[in-house]
Write a protein that binds this DNA or RNA. Structure first.
Length: 557
RNA sequence: GGCCUCGUGGUGUAAUGGUAGCACUAAGGAUUCUGAUUCCUUCUGUCGGGGUUCGAAUCCCUGCGAGGCUACCA
């Protein structure tokens, strides 16, 4: 894995800060809102912040940004912790919650009111919108903007004690209603929410907004570089305004970077949730989902995901990565570590005519071709076997290195067979292939040293492990799932063939596989044991296929 | 319409005033009991136009293009 730090604009800024003596130790954080599951985009954000903390020998914190009790749940907190941990981003003892700072934040709100920098506003949400102005027109001051400090103090206190209904009043910063940056047009600091919070219960009736909570939380924790995505760029002046106008213990710096986007993938919590609730996928951890839990179930390793995030790099402009890079990272990792097994996904029977009826002959195959130290397993050869339907052609072209009438191939690890005959049904499908084996070729070569170009995988028709294979394609048919006709949504771009379930046969040893264990099915792809596996059936998910230059050539014609 | 940010091969990223490099993809070849892996080779790039400079991807101006911003979400 190439995991050396790469030069990027954030590291440049940090280098400068370090050189200028602004900081001696770097502290970063990942601040998820516990209102959904983490996806690959979050994995990228984690990688950026955690990677920097690690490379600069600094600290990495995990902080749940839980300022909206209406949306957040403890269930998500637990799932997110598990995902972050699985990804290898260790926060040590530094697990925090913005809700830990509610008292401090309240105190600071009072401070602002006392300074004449905040006021309680009685405008309705609709009125506020009108008063705010537009992108091109300045807003105008609320009639409550200059109410006496004392009055705001009293009202704010009563908001806190639950005297008012939701939406009745808010606390606003007094900044500049004409500022071209809308975030500075007297942003809301506190709103009334009579919802029960997953950690503070019913203690609070008012909750701080993201803007009022985030920077101050960073400051409390001593975060030096608060890394976030591009859309917060416009919030930075406000972020700094709070830091400058409040007696905060440290001065964090917000730096924005571009989110990670991938072709054929959606990374929007809202839309992912929609896929789940509308039943387009079986759940958050459906192997087709780009969630951390979905990728994990699919067979992805944290190493592969981290490598992908590393290779995607950090940038300041929106970009879309090719899906092939993700696949490359997984293959690269699994090529190294996955044990090899044989499995036939689309079987056709071969009868070896000169093989004794009830005999079983065992051959040995290494678990990993480049690592003999990982041992070997035995595969059973019998008179009747299955081979891949695509490994036989009735009338093959010259370059087809597999089985065809009169042609000889090697059964991997076992022996050579030559096709003598075959039968078809009315639909023209091959129903059975007949062949003879060369007893001299046992072990995979013959004394005469003749060359056999093709080697195919196979499984005994009587000694095998049947299983359900789930084969995946992209969840969406378009590289940009949002590319839709008028009146359609991304849901219309769902790929109806994103999952196909087939019955397959694996070599006997596969019966010992454990849930989430990953294998390379030789010549086919990498597969992981799905948690749906039980005493009755084995389920394997195809994580990614092997590269297939032959298949590609075929497609081109 | 306003403000902000950003434009480097097909894609993603380096080069911070001094030979435009790397990776993925694609194409070709070598090796191979996986048409896998590995190894080698090749293709393609600084958005346009001015300017500063001995020298510009880099600095300045301008045009063009892309993205973001009008929640009591984060």
């Amino acid at each position: 894995m190439t995991d050396e730090p790469t030069s990027n604009f954030i590291r440049d800024i940090i280098d400068e800060d370090l050189a200028a003596g602004t900081h001696t130790q770097i502290v970063t954080r990942f601040p998820p809102e516990p209102n959904g599951y983490l996806h690959i985009g979050h994995a990228f954000a984690i990688k950026v912040s955690h990677g920097i903390a690690r490379d600069y020998k600094g600290l990495f914190y995990l902080r749940f940004d839980d300022t909206n009790p209406a949306k957040e749940e403890d269930e998500y907190v637990q799932a997110i912790k598990a995902d972050v941990q699985w990804l290898g981003a260790d926060w040590g003892d530094n697990l925090f919650f913005t809700s830990d700072y509610f008292d401090k934040l309240y105190e600071w709100a009072i401070h602002l009111i006392n300074e004449g920098l905040a006021y309680v506003d009685d405008l309705t949400p609709e009125e506020m919108r009108t008063y705010r102005g537009t992108l091109t027109e300045p807003g105008k001051n609320s009639p409550y903007r200059d109410r006496p400090i004392k009055e705001s103090l009293d009202l704010f206190q009563r908001m806190k004690s639950g005297e008012f209904d939701e939406g009745e009043r808010v606390l606003r910063a007094k900044i500049d209603m004409a500022n071209p940056n809308l975030n500075l047009r007297d942003p809301v600091l506190y709103r009334i929410l009579h919802a029960s919070h997953h950690r503070t219960g019913d203690k609070w009736k008012i909750y701080p907004s993201y803007d009022f909570a985030h920077g101050q939380s960073d400051a409390i924790e001593g975060i030096t570089h608060s890394l976030c995505s591009l859309e917060f760029e416009f919030h930075r002046p406000l972020y700094n305004w709070f830091i400058e106008n409040l007696p905060v213990p440290s001065k964090p710096r917000q730096i924005e970077f571009a989110r990670l986007n991938i072709e054929y993938v959606i990374t929007s919590k809202r839309k992912l949730l929609q896929l789940v609730t509308e039943g387009h996928v079986r759940g958050w951890d459906d192997p087709r989902m780009p969630t951390v839990s979905g990728l994990r179930r699919r067979g992805y390793t944290p190493e592969a995901i981290n490598e992908f995030c590393h290779r995607a790099g950090v940038a300041k402009r929106e970009r879309v990565n090719e899906y092939s890079l993700l696949e490359y990272c997984l293959r690269q990792d699994l090529e190294e570590r996955a044990f090899r097994r044989m499995a036939v996904l689309d079987p056709v029977k071969v009868v070896i005519e000169n093989f004794p009826e009830d005999e079983v002959e065992y051959f040995e195959g290494p678990n990993h071709p480049a690592k003999p130290e990982l041992g070997a397993r035995k595969v059973a050869l019998t008179k009747e076997i299955y081979i891949e339907r695509s490994d036989f052609m009735e009338d093959p072209p010259k370059k087809f290195f597999r089985l065809g009438p009169g042609r000889e191939v090697r059964l991997r690890y076992a022996c050579y067979i030559t096709c003598t005959d075959f039968t078809k049904n009315e639909q023209g499908e091959i129903t059975e292939i007949r062949a003879t084996f060369d007893p001299e070729s046992r072990g995979g070569s013959t004394p005469d040293g003749r060359r056999v170009k093709g080697t195919i995988h196979w499984v005994s028709a009587t000694r095998n492990t049947p299983f359900e294979a789930r084969i995946y394609e992209q969840l969406f048919t378009k590289a940009n799932p949002e590319d839709v006709e008028e009146g359609q949504t991304f849901v219309d771009n769902l790929n109806p063939n994103s999952e196909s379930i087939i019955t397959a046969y694996g070599e006997p040893k596969l019966s010992e596989a454990k849930v989430s264990e990953r294998f390379q099915f030789e010549r086919k792809g990498y597969f992981a044991v799905d948690p749906d596996t039980n005493a009755e059936k084995f389920v394997f998910n195809q994580a990614v296929s092997l590269r297939d230059s032959w298949g590609k050539k075929q497609k081109k014609g």
